[in-house]
Design a binder for these strands. Sequence first.
RNA 1: GGCGAAGUGGCCGAGUGGCUAGGCAGAGGUCUGCAAAACCUUCUACAGCGGUUCGAAUCCGCUCUUCGCCUCCA
Length: 480
Amino acid sequence: MPLKIYNSLTRSKEEFTPLHPGQVTMYVCGPTVYGHAHLGHAKSYVSFDVVLKWLRHLGYRVTYIQNITDVGHLTDDADEGEDKIARQARREQTDPMEIAQLYTRSYYEDMDRLGVDRPNIAPTATGHIPDQIALIRTLIEKGHAYEVNGNVYFSVESFPGYGKLSGRTTDDARQPGGRVEARSEKRHPADFALWKKAEPGHLMKWESPWSEGYPGWHAECSAMAMKYLGETIDIHGGGMENKFPHHECEIAQSEAATGHPYVRYWMHNNMVTVDGTKMGKSLGNFINLKDIFNEFDPIVIRFFILQSHYRSPLDFSHQAVKASQTGLEKLRESWLRLTASAPGEEDIDTDAYENRLVEAMNDDFNTPVALAVLFDLSKAINTALDSGGLKEEARNDCIRLFSTFGIEVLGILDNRPNTVNEASTSIAQALEGAMSLLLDIRQKARQSKDYETSDLIRDRLDEAGITIKDTREGAEWKLG
RNA sequence: GGCGAAGUGGCCGAGUGGCUAGGCAGAGGUCUGCAAAACCUUCUACAGCGGUUCGAAUCCGCUCUUCGCCUCCA
């Protein structure tokens, strides 16, 4: 089965074929950097990280762009509100640019820990003001935008396709919510700002043909996506909450400017909820990644996220993550045993597992099913190893499958089953020697049925963070 | 009000017109000096009411409930 992707635009799964054979252009809406990343960011970027990794695994050369929004836009069309980054700068008594840099670093730090690959290009909005101005100029020239008092608006009525992504095709549905400004200078209530004139005291502002001001909320993504990826890009991803108005406006301004389709496959990931309600900055219930990483290994969080589908909402609870942690531990254990195992006579039909894994990933990146298959495979491996070991070929195939899917594609396992064993530092070697001695002493104690001593050794080591396991082949130890 | 998503067993969470999801937790067992790990067996399902069908948790309709978007948000 070929790769199928659920396209939000057509609301159906479609076979994926890139515009240019062998190459994929992909753009995912990045964060607005005015605070530390939270679980919602994690779900989004882990999901798209797997998309990226799977596409690369399939052999595509993927150009992946993720912007950094370092202009904290207000509401897109009202005059009220304050620039988020400027506000944070005021709170922290520093410059907006420092805020943007600080939280950009923080963001990458968290994403690195989650095993998320960095994008090929991470353009900033402030670094692309000329490109946004050029886009706006084109729109004015083509009659899709108009200027009023130094502000520039996109004319929704000039673009018939407006609403095709979100299903808001009637005037009624496009009406902004309760806060329609009575004396709006816009021609149509749904028109959105491309450029805003800076009010007095506004820190982040640039020269433009219309006023000293700043770009509207939607301009940056269109300008940067098209600058680096061309007028038509293969995949554009983002959170569901951005479908309307953000992505709808992106489509309108991009297609109006170029006359070409903007995005071939729109992908939207679902939200993280906490106790059944949305995690929102304004609700104050969002969970910081740095906080949660104190409690759980970041890879556990990654695994937790991948245990549900990217288009499903994910409900966070301590209990659920805990369950994931135990589950992941099981896979790790199996992976460890496998790599350390000696050849035997047992066989496993690895092709069947591989097919299921490929099918799952090709079916709109169904990571929960892929993980379920890995659990099945893990059980088969454990059973085989319990009965004396795997045949050389089967063992190699299993290692390959775990490497490909567990490490390379899903990123939930690593290549360092036992970091101490592989480390070459003198400390590691010393520990290795000391452990060998302790295990020998313990073994002697057990042989003479001195269980008090043997259990003491085990308990004290456990307190020291070293776990002892008695297996058929003798005692084993590991950190943690 | 408009647009959209969803209701699965104790919890999380896939899937589907007839055939085991998976993980966690629970019960029993094998192994073990005891643990741990592993393996085996096992218990709780598809919101409700109608309809289509040989057969529906899966399709259709209605009802109830939840969630998201319509204001910045991954």
